[in-house]
Design a protein around this nucleic acid. Structure first.
Length: 937
RNA sequence: GUCCCCGUAUCCCAACGGCAGAGGAAAUGGUCUCAAACACCAUCCAGUGUGGGUUCGAAUCCCACCGGGGACACCA
């Protein structure tokens, strides 16, 4: 098809073939000349002679991809093209632009492929990275290729391991609210300024005891704790990697709670700062909200409720409602349940409370068994109907001595707060629902509005609350906390939903820990000089996996089978000894937790980043600024996981003085997705989307009618379109312009190959404006523009700059098309308009723009040419046409000079609509300068 | 169930509270062609999801509802 047309089209038309030739040539030029190298202030990448050396900086970054085996489809590069257009514009506008790209290359698919085929994951990964690089180069991305890396490069993960050691070798000083070196903690213990856990002097502790105390404070630590064990994957998972219905995010296998010894990171200590510092960030509100939800900070109080000889602490956000606490509920799994359960039902036990059982012990046992058998899904699915059972025990409400029954119920979660609550049905919808089922008293302690039914959770004066009466909720909370603390019944407290980050995985394809164990079984950090700990080759890449439903299994790591690697003889200061290596590997998130920093100084082998380079590219820009990447573009699916972990590591590095910014990404932008239609025939079988045709609004595959559906682009839906196909059929520049012109960057939209031709026609018109299609001669003249066209040109320049600054690429392109359409019919193509047009086109269609720029007689790349600036004098219209409205309807128009006084406009307007007024007196005349005149009669 | 975002022409999308259309696709007609495709020219197409309100004036602001997408979902 394409070939036929080329044989008869004018010889020098801008076809896909010509575009391909131009594109290949300019890609080579850019690579050969290092056109997009960005100079650093210091170190290997410093270059004082660079045209942007010392210029204002701009650091723009994309969320780097995992290089999958199937390569890029047209949806993947949307954000990359967006940042490329933006940074090319900003570079021309005078900024020193850092726009790098790397690869998040550790991860499960390469490992699973290795398990199936025996191919080393490194082989697969490197081949995929090469393919991605080639695809991105073909799209004309202006990356500084010197700054590219994969997280799997030993020279990269050496620093990932180095950061792990920083975290391992520090602790969180709550008084200071920040991380400090672990040596400071040891010094405090030794000096006696900090008490040891059991109160004995530091000197009396044995060496092993001391190490255990210190290890208990490290930000990275090993602990035996309930974790998410996924037998189907053969590994444990972080909470964030488990779906709400209790399955693995990857693979969708069942996940079980098991108590296992694993590495964790003390991210919970940073809960407050991770919430509070969101204020500094220019991020989409939904993402901030998701982070707040995930961290789940609640302020309130812990209150002690005596139950027989025990004291059960509860956490509440509403200490002000304590007088309304009419019963207590423990989670079924709560440790004290058995102890407080008496032998017989006390007098006055209601039938509804016993579940029909003869003794409390029976009732409790039956309820616990039933609750344990339920999955997480079942527990929440029928969440409306409250279930539970009376334990037979009574607690004492500390504020008024009231005797209140203690229940167990599965609406109280063992893992949150203290696993027990005081129930205040008057002010809590869940407690209200439970109280109705179990006929429990309801006492309102906040005055509800007249006629209000149900639990009232709003603000209002306290009632039925003795000395709290009349206070509003906030006052009452504060007063109650003070009272509890004064009388020893409780204290103010803050709880988080966030848990410590499970950091070890039983996988092969990840960063090894820089940790060994000595004869005590305690971890020992390897010194920096031994980094990187290189991932050894093994024969078998798979962790031991199990029947996905078999919870009673134990993880076994691939590295543990490599005995000659695991056992190692080292001198770590105590002479040569045998140590055992840690055989877990780090989770995939590790490499992406800090890559924004390595781009700044990728070849530095003395530090992860030189402080001067970090301060220049990412440091705070003004007092009160958090610093960070100026623009970070990626999908919203990383709202919690990656972005939370990266913020955490960044803050630790900040605390330890390695960097000057305390947030990694100042501005975040979530790009939309390109989705695609898929088609099924009557049997429900997918047919290749490219073979489907539309006739009269219906869709056919051959002669078979097919049904259209809308979804992700992917092999499974048989609707993949690749950028390579688009480059072959139209050229990379056309593809770039099309993706940017389809709509705003943050809006998802369907792919439509048929519509791409519109962008090609546009570029062809621009080409034709400069180059004669028959002779290839340049047809641009030095004749000045006529006055009207000049004004149009400057309006477009002004608009395009404004659009680009706000990432509104679609409207910027529309304005360039508009300008082209204005210039096309003119008898002569004037340089005065064509050159700015070519420069403004450069961010979107860089190859074509470079080619035209060269043909216009410029000897150098336009990457550093000045982006056109509008002449303010040209933006003032020579005359203004005012529509004149009478009662909201346009009844006439007047044309006046731009500087006409309002009175004159008013007079002219009234004259213009005299007929419509028909002699009526205007009640009111509104003149909106430069816009319109509105007459009210 | 709660919260957030979005509903403009056949489709993708524009429009500081001020004449609803910037741009693209499709469709229709034409120029070119032996013919077709490409290219070029022209034409066609909505009163802004629905109902109220504020205003001289509402796609835009407010309220309710409908439809689509997303987040959270016993977190005390």
């Amino acid at each position: 098809m394409v070939k036929m047309s080329e044989s008869e089209a004018p010889r020098f038309r801008y076809t896909a073939e010509l575009a391909g030739e131009i594109e290949t040539r300019w890609q080579a030029y850019w690579a050969d000349h290092g056109t997009f190298h960005a100079p650093n202030p210091t170190g290997d990448l410093a270059d004082p002679a660079h045209p942007r050396s010392g210029a204002p900086k701009l650091h723009v970054q994309d969320m780097f991809p995992y290089p999958s085996g199937s390569g890029l489809h047209v949806g993947h590069p949307l954000g990359y093209i967006g940042t490329d257009c933006y940074t090319r514009y900003k570079r021309m506008a005078g900024y020193n632009v850092l726009h790098p790209m790397g690869f998040d290359a550790f991860g499960l698919p390469a490992e699973q492929y290795a398990v199936q085929t025996g191919t080393h994951p490194r082989t697969t990964t490197e081949a995929n990275v090469q393919r991605y690089r080639a695809q991105l180069r073909r799209l004309g991305m202006a990356y500084d290729e010197r700054r590219s890396f994969s997280t799997t490069d030993p020279e990269y993960y050496r620093w990932t391991q180095w950061i792990f050691l920083q975290i391992f070798n520090s602790w969180f000083d709550r008084a200071a609210g920040r991380a400090r070196p672990i040596d400071d903690l040891v010094a405090e213990f030794a000096a006696g300024t900090r008490e040891t856990p059991d109160g004995r002097p530091w000197a009396e502790l044995s060496a092993v005891e001391r190490r255990k105390v210190v290890d208990g404070h490290r930000l990275a630590y090993v602990s035996e704790a309930p974790v998410n064990w996924c037998p189907g994957l053969g590994t444990v998972l972080a909470n964030e990697e488990v779906t709400p219905d209790g399955r693995s995010e990857r693979g969708n296998f069942p996940v079980f709670q098991r108590s296992l010894e694993q590495w964790k990171m003390r991210i919970t200590e940073y809960g407050d700062r991770l919430v509070d510092d969101l204020e500094y960030l220019d991020w989409p509100e939904p993402v901030k909200l998701m982070q707040r939800n995930w961290i789940g900070r609640s302020r309130g109080a812990n209150v002690d409720f005596p139950v027989q000889d025990d004291v059960i602490p509860v956490f509440t956000t509403r200490p002000d409602t304590l007088f309304g606490a009419t019963y207590m509920v423990l989670a079924p799994e709560h440790a004290l349940v058995t102890r407080i359960t008496p032998e017989a039902w006390p007098a006055g036990t209601k039938d509804a409370w016993t579940g029909g059982h003869a003794t409390p012990a029976e009732a409790v046992a039956a309820y616990r068994t039933a609750a344990a058998a339920k999955t997480e899904e079942e527990r929440t699915a029928d969440g409306k109907v409250k279930t539970g059972v009376f334990t037979g025990a009574y607690a004492t409400n500390p504020v008024n001595g009231a005797r209140i029954p203690v229940f167990i119920a599965d609406y109280v979660l063992a893992g949150y707060g203290t696993g027990a609550i005081m129930a205040v049905p008057g002010q809590d919808a869940r407690d209200w629902a439970f109280a109705e089922v179990f006929e429990l008293p309801i006492i309102r302690t906040v005055a509800a509005p007249e006629g209000f039914e149900g639990a009232f959770t709003g603000d209002g004066p306290a009632i039925n609350s003795d000395w709290l009466d009349g206070k509003d909720v906030a006052e009452a909370k504060a007063a109650m906390i003070a009272w509890l603390e004064e009388h020893g019944h409780g204290r103010g407290a803050t709880t988080y939903r966030l848990r410590d980050w499970l950091f070890s995985r039983q996988r092969y394809w990840g960063e090894p820990f820089p940790i060994v164990y000595d004869e005590t079984g305690l971890p020992v950090a390897l010194p920096e000089s031994m980094l990187p700990v290189v991932l050894p080759d093994v024969d078998d890449f798979s962790p031991r996996t199990f029947d996905p439903d078999d919870a009673d299994t134990e993880p076994e790591t691939p590295l543990s089978r490599k005995k000659d690697w695991v056992e190692v003889e080292l001198d770590l200061g105590d002479g040569r000894k045998t140590y055992t290596r840690e055989t877990n590997t780090m989770p995939q998130w590790a490499g992406s937790c800090w890559y924004e920093l390595r781009y700044l100084d990728p070849e530095n082998n003395k530090a992860l980043v030189d402080p001067e380079n970090e301060a220049y590219w990412m440091g705070p820009q003004r007092p009160g600024d958090c610093g960070g990447v100026d623009l970070y573009v990626g999908g919203v699916e990383h709202a919690v996981l990656h972005l939370l972990y990266a913020r955490f590591w960044h803050k630790v590095l900040f605390d330890l003085g390695h960097i000057s910014s305390f947030e990694p990404f100042r501005k975040l932008f979530n790009q939309g997705y390109i989705q695609a239609y898929a088609y099924r025939d009557a049997r429900g079988v997918l047919v290749p989307a490219e073979e489907v045709v539309e006739r009269d609004g219906r869709y056919f595959h051959g002669d078979t009618p097919v049904a259209r559906e809308y979804g992700k682009m992917g092999k499974s839906l048989k609707n993949v379109v690749t950028p390579d196909e688009m480059c072959d059929q139209y050229g990379a520049d056309t593809f770039r312009v099309y993706e940017m012109a389809m709509g705003p960057l943050d809006v998802s939209r369907p792919w439509d190959t048929r519509a791409v031709v519109g962008s090609q026609r546009f570029l062809q018109r621009v080409w034709r404006l400069v180059v004669d299609e028959e002779t290839a001669t340049v047809r641009v003249t030095d004749e000045p523009l006529d006055v009207k066209t000049r004004r149009a040109l400057h309006r477009v320049i002004d608009g395009v700059r404004g659009d680009l600054d706000e990432l509104r690429f679609n409207t910027a392109i529309a304005k360039l098309i508009e300008l082209t359409n204005v210039l096309t019919p003119l008898p002569t193509a004037s340089r005065e308009a064509v050159e700015p047009l070519v420069l403004m086109l450069a961010p979107f269609a860089p190859h074509l723009a470079e080619e035209l720029w060269a043909r216009l007689g410029h000897g150098d790349t336009l990457a550093y040419a000045t982006f056109p600036e509008a002449d303010p004098a040209q933006l003032v219209a020579e005359s203004i046409t005012y529509p004149v409205q009478v009662n909201g309807k346009v009844r006439g128009r007047v044309e006046v000079a731009p500087d006409t006084a309002q009175d004159e406009v008013r007079a002219a307007a009234l004259a213009a609509v005299a007929e419509a007024l028909a002699g009526r007196d205007p009640k009111k005349v509104i003149v909106v300068p430069g816009r319109l005149v509105s007459v009210v009669v």
